[in-house]
Design a binder for these strands. Structure first.
Lengths: 149, 149
DNA sequence: TTTCATGTAACTTCAATTATTACAATTCGA
DNA sequence: TCGAATTGTAATAATTGAAGTTACATGAAA
């Protein structure tokens, strides 16, 4: 199964944008993420719809973060992407007549719902600002290692 | 993304087998699960490797449960199926050089690992016997409803 | 007015599960 | 012993959804 990596992608893009002063073009983001500008526009467009980023056409155009880094959670980003299916495992038939299959679905659905709830709760506690701090720490460590060697 | 429904499938199959006296053929299981006998063989073959079911060729052949229903957990079945990826969401690049992406991966990996651990812990607490009981309850309810109306 | 950039539709590629076909191997019953 | 029933398995196609690509229209700034 091909995994949906859009959440990972937009986080990567947003943190790079946070490091920049002005707008960043789709072309630049695409290069730094080894992907295609059109894919960037498509995905970032979803974030624009909920006001997390803004875009401008023409010269000096590109993408800009339009919200406070501390106010944007992973959960909001997940929702902005259309709340894609979290699990790669699922029921064969969501509305079976067979009572055996109903019993199976019920147990599996409960377990998956519990795990998804935990994941989304955790997503609520992480903001872009948190990630920026984490990146800054890694960057400082990296500089230190480079100085020593 | 196409979801892996083999866990759901084998549970369905195993509970149907538990209701039966003798062996059940791949053909019968395939019909009751709206799938193909070869798919059944392929999937059940994985369960046979860990001793949960046994198979016999020829006349009067087919599949039989080889373990105690109370001793087989969802977790064991998940493992027997090769521990397929639980999540449909993942990182774009698992071993990035980019420090930004490393920070992103780290946060996401932690969150997913936590949710997966919860899911598997829950899978450990559910046995085939539990599911059989749940099915029996549903069956009794269904009979009652039918008698009333 | 030219160039740079987004916006978007249409289509192709890609990866993974699932389905199908074909046939070999085995076992039981008549 | 023969033959039908059944599993075992390789090879291949269908399916599905994300990701990638092409093409072109639109808009803004130099």
């Amino acid at each position: 199964m091909k995994r949906d990596s859009r959440l990972s992608s937009v986080l990567h893009a947003l943190l790079h944008m946070a490091e920049q002063d002005g707008p960043v073009t789709s072309e630049t983001l695409a290069q730094c993420m080894n992907t295609n500008p059109v894919v960037v526009r498509r995905t970032m467009g979803l974030l624009r719809e909920v006001g997390i980023v803004s875009s401008a056409k023409g010269h000096t155009g590109g993408w800009t973060i339009a919200a406070d880094l501390g106010a944007v959670t992973l959960r909001q980003l997940h929702e902005a992407l259309g709340e894609p299916a979290v699990f790669a495992i699922g029921n064969r038939n969501e509305t079976p007549e067979c009572l055996v299959e109903q019993a199976v679905n019920s147990v599996l659905d409960d377990a998956f719902a519990e795990a998804e709830a935990l994941l989304l709760k955790r997503f609520e506690t992480v903001t872009l600002a948190d990630l920026a701090v984490d990146f800054a720490r890694r960057h400082a460590e990296w500089r230190e290692r480079r100085t020593i060697s």
